[in-house]
Design a binder for these strands. Structure first.
Lengths: 379, 379
DNA sequence: GACCACCGCGTAACCGCTCACGATAGCCCA
DNA sequence: TGGGCTATCGTGAGCGGTTACGCGGTGGTC
């Protein structure tokens, strides 16, 4: 925001002098919005009376109110939200920072946030970061300028010290202004950091699904899409491993494939798995999108699901019922996450101790999983 | 916004007196953000100099600039966007009004809007209306208060006179403030209305797809999900009909089923079709989501796609490649719609005559369509 | 050596609205 | 009839940042 090399004014000056022959201040658009004073003049009252009519928090004679309302209607008056925000403290805005609106995962949380925000009389600002930690920081800074009531950041956090430090700084900075940093679906920043975190039981979901697969008889389960350094991924792997250990098993490292949480990666990884001739009877995808990609690769490879191999996903986004076969997956309460995020943030004085809430997850069983068939190798 | 019955002040007064025993103004949060004047004092300069350093549009000695920057860093200063917006004209914000962020259709447009907006240095406000025309009006009003640079409304319009009149009013009102109403994917409001509209060739897409089906030999094509009164739907039906007429055919009204643009409706409608024993060899769904529902119903009914009946969708959302079989559909340039919407709105002085842009659509052929098989009845 | 252009910066006046404070008028009761 | 009260309303001081205007200082020019 701060332009350090300030030579820009040279251009500006040139433009001004050039503008003399051009359209000059004409480009500044027509400014003829009516103000409180305009309304006041027309109604024959003072500006503060108009303000009082709008606020409704102060006695105004019925006759006067009527005059004012009439004037407002005639002038098609609308308050200037900025002027109002400048005087008062809050500007009635909630910010929502997300990787990419396009992903159904984020979209549903966004819906929850937007619903609750508008229910609480707040507007909602949307910012996307495209997975770039730098942009997250920049965006949060902008929200600080906007004096948002709450800044909600969603998505797996990068387990990076410098990044976490910056976020901690923002948490304190926002707190000082009376705002609030909310972390959704990512781990807390640490003790004493003024931020509320709304999480879902990532590890338990992975644990439950893995247990489901294991107790169905599967012993060699491939895990698709481990993203090193991403908290979400780490937790899911953790649940995956713990379920194995509880049954005295250890997952084969060769069956854990690194990669992003994308459909494309699911496709690639499943193809590799097939090509390598690896022994496995089930696939646990890190994400429903990854599962969708894997499903396609499996189908193209002539592998039947679930007869030959079972496939499970994570998230329970709408597409899970549209893929074929319908996907067994871990349900994440997306909208509820968004809603409680803004609720907790806006009423943090009412819920002072529950500023770290973790919502439950559960598995939903559909058509893509069953017990292991005959090993593919022996066919 | 204007509370007509202003008795609310009674509660307010009660609250104030009650607060005396409580935490009083404590709830107003700690206000200790540093201002321009704080920075100025610490740097030993005047407030205007600080402002000039930030703006970069005016000469400031290097030494002074350094002092100011140092002070800003030490105080962790951030400008107040509202104060800035109050003095200057624009507040660097683009509003985005949508039915429901959850739909992939809207989500992709949203992405385009957000990308272009941030590329142009604008923030992005998101509002959802849940298909309620009343809320659209209310939301646009709020955006007027926010003095947004542009208000982008997307989604099929309701062909309702009163509604259109209100929108026309808003178009003029926004224009007066130097803002702009942008309609995406909906028809223009009429001649002389200051609004930019970015549309895609809805009718041509439906025409192309229908022609594709007809030239493959299909003669009895069912159209799923006609939404009466919704402009998008009307246009698609129009293309569907025109394609028939061009080949000297007339579509059978019995094969055009009313309903919403939802997955659930697609499912219901396809089941009805099957149950009624109607004669058809292809299904043209009004939407990919509708197609997904239809696909499920068909599969459950033992009908093979595309061997027995072909299925086509509209929109080309990501799920189109995840359903089975992969869906033949009409591609709509969602992100491009969003991007050109904000581009046109923000630079409307540069493109004065092209304020009604219509982007092309094209069909993409995947696995769900082919020529008609043997009639289902005779099997 | 006086004059002028120009650079760098401070002063003060806004932008539109809210709110504490003070003023005015009607009303009641002593 | 005067004093006190209350219901209404106007006045003015900001909220934080931008910007037109003006002033002191410097260097160059005739």
């Amino acid at each position: 925001m701060v332009r350090v090399r300030g030579k820009a004014y040279v251009n500006e000056a040139a433009q001004v002098s050039a503008g003399k022959t051009g359209r000059r201040t004409e480009s500044a658009a027509g400014r003829d919005v009516s103000t409180v004073r305009d309304v006041a003049r027309r109604a024959g009252v003072s500006a503060s009376t108009v303000s009082r009519v709008m606020g409704g928090t102060y006695p105004v004679a019925a006759a006067t109110r009527a005059k004012v309302l009439k004037a407002m209607r005639e002038l098609d008056y609308v308050v200037n939200a900025h002027a109002r925000a400048l005087g008062g403290s809050t500007n009635k805005t909630v910010a929502f920072v997300v990787d990419d609106v396009t992903g159904p995962f984020y979209a549903h949380i966004a819906r929850g946030v937007e619903e609750q925000a508008s229910a609480e009389g707040r507007l909602c600002m949307l910012c996307t970061t495209h997975g770039d930690p730098q942009r997250v920081l920049a965006v949060v800074e902008m929200m600080r300028e906007q004096r948002a009531d709450a800044v909600i950041v969603v998505g797996g956090a990068w387990e990076d010290k410098a990044y976490q430090d910056r976020m901690t700084h923002f948490a304190h900075a926002l707190d000082r202004v009376g705002s609030r940093l909310v972390l959704v679906g990512r781990p807390p920043l640490g003790e004493g950091v003024p931020a509320t975190v709304v999480d879902y039981d990532n590890e338990a979901g992975a644990f439950a699904m893995t247990t489901h697969l294991l107790s169905a008889g599967h012993r060699r389960i491939a895990y698709l899409a481990r993203v090193p350094g991403l908290s979400t991924s780490t937790q899911r792997i953790s649940g995956f491993t713990r379920a194995h250990e509880l049954m005295g098993l250890t997952p084969d490292p060769a069956l854990i494939l690194d990669g992003e949480f994308t459909r494309a990666h699911g496709y690639r990884a499943a193809r590799e798995l097939l090509a390598s001739g690896a022994d496995f009877s089930a696939v646990f995808a890190g994400t429903d999108m990854v599962a969708a990609g894997a499903l396609q690769a499996l189908r193209e490879g002539g592998v039947r699901v679930p007869e030959d191999v079972s496939v499970a996903g994570y998230d329970d986004i709408p597409v899970a019922i549209d893929v074929y076969p319908a996907l067994t997956t871990v349900h994440v309460p997306h909208e509820e996450l968004g809603r409680t995020a803004v609720r907790l943030a806006l009423h943090r004085d009412e819920f002072p101790e529950s500023q770290h809430q973790v919502l439950g997850t559960h598995i939903v069983i559909r058509a893509s999983t069953r017990g292991p068939g005959r090993p593919r190798e022996t066919s």
